[in-house]
Design a protein around this nucleic acid. Structure first.
Lengths: 341, 341
DNA sequence: GTGAAAGCGCTAACAT
DNA sequence: ATGTTAGCGCTTTCAC
């Protein structure tokens, strides 16, 4: 099955012109006679010739590649962002090169490798770590933008990197305040961990602050193993078994996905949603509006987040923009998962 | 921001050895003295040097790349398959190169290009067209496997290509028979089109056959613009407005996603699920088990489908296997979306 | 309008 | 154990 590749040399030989002329045809250069062009194109078509990209990239000094490193393959929240980024990148005349990596991998290292391999002009990180050090960042020598997260713990200087995200802590605060305004006093939180330096931690901190500002005790903090539905289901099911937990009238979940898992566990435990337990979440997946009951959630502007990341990156690439932390607003989408009590 | 790249030559110069020695260190060859290796590694670390992959791939004759072309970016059904493929490919010592393309794009053309650019040893197509011609296929000169679909209309000879999929028509038949066994007589179908040569058409044919075999009339065929939730919602909502439609006690949806959209539209139209309308679908998304009511669906063995595709591909690559159409079984997962009447 | 020749960064004989 | 050398397939001066 080993096929001997057709090269530019073969095309040149078969069409009776030089390699240079073939190259010109390949790159749509004007300085080729119609006659030569026709011959070369005919040979290319008949041989199924496809230029070797490695060779092209090796010799070319410029490129139009923008890299996108996505951390955490199966996060449904990313899909719309990826599409927005892809279309914005394409609109700007660049090519998006996507790389997915597991949540246990280091996106900076991958980005650095990709930058060289693909001769990237810029990089976007989607869903990355929070604790970059200035040294980490030096391995990336092209402009980059953090999309959907920022560097809240100040391990980077604000003027030294760019990000586009929501205000996680504030958004969580708003979600919890919404529940409080609906009369809830015992509000539980469904998170991954209180101190894992992740989005979960930020949203948890918003939850804590909202409770404190309103003089409320926590209705329980339920931690999951993972961000997925099943993890949320199991954590909630376990919490309901626990006699010390479960005494809450409302739940704040850090993601729609986790809210859906928790909702099922609540029902399986004999609690109705929202009659016995209200639920609010953050993310705003399209799906969440279709389930029963429709989930009340704070929507991230995914489309805008993607486009804004690209806009910022292009500005940096052109040497125009300053580094900045772009904070986008979220929007409450009321479903029927929260009830006034 | 234009950074002059560090090359192997610089590393050689800075560490006082030849380029070859650096190359040996890079490729973990044994024939380098500990001393040289140490020096080279130190220089590499201090310069953040990353080998230029284009140059490596250009000169290498072999590669360990297997390409995966995914058609239709946002299909949630693919995510588990992709992960299964990735892990199987990695386990076999190969690297998976993923490329997503829109449903309006031609995966064969992309695969052909990718094959050359990435020096692929094999290709897997996930979610492709049904109507390949033998000529289309000639542009792919490495072994390939069609995953999740096959070539049911016989435009290819069976012994000339490989595929791993479910029996779409039979599975749809089974779904509809399940509804019939539950006492339903007026069963509607939610599909994209009756004759678009897609999975939708195959499943529609299974629906038609099941009705015919049981002497039933169709309860209505509802066609959507697209495979997504919203498209299904709108199509169903429109059907319910139509006085001539809507006279069904059960719905067969060709995908979980579409079932979820339809379920919402039914409820918004004042119908309870399953009391007023039962629903069954095909796919078996994890999510579908968590919604209310849990969706009754015929699960595709996504994990197995991915692994089997890789197994078949590796066999072809080794010149061992024969071309074959692998048909995997589906499994009924009963939720509570179907009621006996 | 066309071609010869240099070289992109790297690997792999083939010396030594 | 190490270095010298010849290309991989392509683009790009620079002549003509």
């Amino acid at each position: 099955m080993q096929v001997v590749a057709v090269t530019i040399k073969d095309i040149a030989r078969l069409s009776g012109v030089s390699i240079t002329t073939v190259s010109r045809v390949l790159n749509n250069r004007p300085d080729v006679s119609a006659e030569s062009r026709r011959k070369v194109e005919a040979v290319i078509a008949s041989t199924n010739y496809i230029p070797n990209n490695s060779a092209r990239e090796l010799v070319r000094t410029d490129s139009t590649n923008i890299g996108l490193v996505v951390r955490g393959v199966s996060n449904p929240f990313y899909i719309d962002i990826i599409q927005a980024i892809e279309s914005a990148v394409t609109d700007a005349g660049f090519t998006m090169v996507l790389q997915q990596i597991g949540s246990d991998k280091d996106e900076i290292a991958h980005g650095a490798i990709m930058q060289r391999e693909k001769r990237l002009r810029g990089l976007i990180f989607l869903g990355g770590r929070f604790d970059y050090t200035p040294e980490d960042v030096t391995s990336i020598t092209v402009p980059f933008v953090c999309c959907s997260y920022t560097n809240p713990y100040g391990t980077l200087l604000e003027g030294n990197y760019s990000s586009v995200s929501i205000a996680d802590e504030d958004t969580a605060y708003e979600a919890v305040r919404y529940l409080i305004e609906k009369g809830h006093q015992r509000i539980a939180a469904l998170i991954t961990a209180t101190n894992d330096r992740s989005i979960s931690q930020l949203r948890y901190e918003g939850y804590v602050k909202a409770l404190r500002d309103h003089g409320l005790e926590s209705g329980g903090v339920i931690c999951t193993e993972s961000y997925d539905i099943r993890g949320a289901y199991e954590a909630m099911a376990a919490a309901l078994q626990d006699k010390n937990s479960g005494d809450f009238t409302a739940l704040f979940a850090i993601s729609d996905n986790m809210a859906i898992g928790a909702m099922r566990a609540l029902r399986d435990g004999g609690r109705r949603v929202p009659e016995d337990c209200s639920i609010i979440a953050i993310d705003g997946l399209e799906l969440s509006a279709y389930i029963e009951p429709p989930l009340t959630t704070l929507c991230q502007p995914m489309e805008q987040m993607g486009r804004e990341s690209v806009r910022q990156l292009l500005a940096l690439m052109n040497g125009e923009g300053e580094h900045m932390q772009h904070i986008l607003p979220t929007e409450l989408r009321e479903g029927r998962s929260v009830e006034k009590i």
